[in-house]
């Protein structure tokens, strides 16, 4: 039960209060955003993907990528034992190398937050998916209860899903209000709030125009992070979708002064892919976003490849998968 209202919006945001005052004004605003040319956006993403990151730059990028991982397990078969193992790995991804940094967060279902928290304490964040993840198909009361439950359980971050059906039907204000309400449900009794990541499920929104609109919608509604996917729908994160979202957070900060984070999730499995994303962050949003506070990877198998490449950089040899823990 929120006892304190969320902090007042940033001064830059108040200029947009009229935008979100009605369904009609919100629609006009979102549909007035510049379009995204699909061919051009995909070409730009592919072009950035050809950057060649070697030696010192690669070592730096690998460590940063590890620090940006939201180590994730979101399976029906998750057990307390399984998530405790994952939490241990999040703290010390490479037990053989104490210089290896911890990941950013562990991402689990809400009921398992306590299990993770018991292992990681305050050293690694705990993120919980909420709001009837992954489909978002439940009543608002259920979604909010789901969120409050996770926050009360100690979650540092909440990964919510938007109602894609409402978005695709053009009910933008409904989606906006759901995000606002979830943001309020993230507030703790002491007035602080769990960081809210808003998942669009870009594989269901389909067009880049929709991704851009959803990005602005979520940012105006108070998202701390915008996130591509649940990982349950294909395609999940792609470079061009992330490009459009990075452009959105860049433009949003320019317009309002408020910086929002970006989290591609699902389908990023190799260190090489992760580095392509970092190049894109660097060249599109700028190096202010090259920090775990502002960019995350939602991933599970990615971490081991990052570790394998990291070991290769330090020892000069590739080791096999058996040298890294499977959790």
């Amino acid at each position: 039960m929120p006892t304190t209202a969320p902090t007042d919006p940033a001064p830059g945001l108040t200029a947009y209060s009229e935008v979100t005052a009605s369904e009609a004004s919100l629609r006009r605003f979102l549909h007035g955003l510049p379009g995204v040319d699909q061919v051009g956006a995909e070409a730009r993403a592919a072009g950035l993907g050809t950057r060649s990151i070697k030696t010192t730059a690669k070592a730096w990028a690998l460590d940063l990528a590890i620090r940006m991982v939201d180590l994730t397990t979101l399976e029906g078969q998750d057990t307390p034992g399984k998530v405790r193992a994952l939490a241990s790995k999040a703290l010390r991804p490479d037990p053989a190398d104490p210089s290896c940094p911890s990941v950013a967060a562990v991402c689990v279902y809400g009921d398992l937050v306590g299990e993770v928290k018991a292992i990681v304490g305050d050293q690694v964040n705990v993120a919980a998916v909420a709001t009837a993840f992954p489909s978002g198909r439940a009543s608002m009361a259920v979604k909010l209860a789901d969120t409050r439950d996770a926050v009360a359980g100690g979650a540092d971050e909440i990964d919510m899903v938007i109602d894609r059906g409402a978005f695709l039907a053009g009910h933008y204000l409904q989606v906006f209000e759901e995000i606002v309400a979830t943001r309020e449900a993230c507030v703790r009794p002491d007035g602080s709030h769990a960081h809210l990541k808003v998942i669009f499920e870009t594989g269901e929104l389909q067009t880049y125009d929709n991704v851009r609109r959803a990005s602005w919608l979520a940012m105006l509604a108070g998202a701390d992070f915008i996130k591509t996917s649940t990982g349950k729908v294909q395609p999940a994160a792609t470079l061009p979708v992330t490009l459009v979202m990075l452009e959105a957070v860049r433009d949003f900060r320019e317009a309002t002064g408020v910086q929002i984070g970006v989290k591609p999730a699902g389908g990023i499995r190799t260190a090489k892919d992760a580095i392509k994303y970092l190049v894109m962050v660097n060249e599109v949003a700028g190096d202010d976003w090259l920090d775990p506070d502002w960019f995350r990877f939602g991933a599970s198998t990615l971490l081991n490849d990052l570790l394998m490449q990291r070991t290769k950089m330090t020892t000069g040899r590739y080791s096999g998968p058996d040298y890294f823990t499977l959790d």
Binding site: S52, K54, A57, W60, V279
Partner: peptide
């Protein structure tokens, strides 16, 4: 430290 790309000739 920013993301400085090392030479990749």
């Amino acid at each position: 430290m920013g993301f400085e790309y090392a030479p990749a000739p």
